[in-house]
Amino acid sequence: MTAGLVLIIGGLVFLSGSAVLAFCWAIRDGQFRNLSAAPLTIFDKDEPVGLPTDRFPSRK
């Protein structure tokens, strides 16, 4: 029981802890510096904002 509890609590701390460490890295790396430009990173010159990229196949 005790060993199991230690492992489970350790597991919780590991999973949450790895997220906290990653969060600290993200801040240091400047990931949160420009939040208005960030959502634009998935668009390209040839697939710009305003261009839908999916549709049902045409009947022809």
């Binding site: 597991g11 949450s16 960030a38 959502p39 998935i42 668009f43 697939e47 305003g50 990229t53 999916d54």
Partner: peptide, 26 residues
């Protein structure tokens, strides 16, 4: 966002959502 060609509404909410899930879900 990619299909309709419009960036997500609030990137701030997006990262808040991710990090709160990451830290507390387990």
């Amino acid at each position: 966002p990619k299909v309709i060609g419009r960036p997500i509404h609030s990137y701030y909410l997006a990262i808040l959502g991710f990090w709160s899930l990451a830290v507390f879900y387990s």
